[in-house]
């Protein structure tokens, strides 16, 4: 797909041959409605975030009802992962990896809660509820203030503490 310029003309010949062979005519066109219904992925820049909004106060209520049984009253963890604390511990002997200490993008919080949480009833929260509980979890981590309202504009603007904490795979590092 990505051809070097010098090979472009040869590539076009090959591509047209391949296209003729690959034109199986199998499959049905996906309609915009079908795609919209299934595309629940949110990019790190917030692309595809839905309309709606929620604040930390509403989020506290959602958390209490739908999250705390597994993640603890204050996000300290239980059956589910610990969500709060641990900032500054990643190079410690016992690092604590949470939303606040480890997750690089706040948008991933919306993406993951909507697609997979709560564990017993995924995709049951409304967009407003997901914005709200995302705001609450970020507040518990000291990343946003109480009363913060999150929506498709404000969520991607949040700078997570570990945003720059990731490096690309540089293996092999051992064993050569």
């Amino acid at each position: 797909m990505r051809m070097r310029d010098g090979l472009l003309s040869a590539a076009i010949v090959l591509a047209s041959t391949a296209a003729a062979l690959a034109d199986y005519g199998i499959g049905t066109p996906a309609t915009p409605e079908e795609i919209a219904g299934w595309n629940i992925s949110i990019g790190r820049d917030g692309d595809n975030l839905p309309a709606g909004s929620g604040d930390t106060v509403a989020g506290a209520e959602v958390f209490e009802q739908r999250c705390s049984a597994c993640h603890g009253e204050s996000g300290e963890g239980g059956i589910g992962d610990r969500l709060v604390g641990g900032q500054g511990t990643l190079s410690d002997e016992r690092p604590i990896k949470t939303v606040g200490s480890y997750w690089p993008y706040a948008t991933t919080l919306f993406d993951y809660i909507r697609r997979a949480m709560p564990l017993d009833s995924p995709q049951s929260l409304s967009a407003d509820e997901v914005y709200a509980v995302s705001a609450y979890i970020l507040m518990l981590n000291g990343i946003v203030d109480e009363g913060t309202v999150l929506d498709a504009d404000s969520l991607p603007a949040i700078e997570m503490p570990n945003r720059d904490g990731f490096v690309l795979d540089d293996r092999p590092d051992v064993g050569q």
Binding site: K97, W103, P104, D111
Partner: peptide
């Protein structure tokens, strides 16, 4: 896509 999705499974 042009970019990865940076899902929970490839970040946290």
């Amino acid at each position: 896509r042009e970019e990865p999705i940076y899902s929970r499974e490839e970040t946290s």
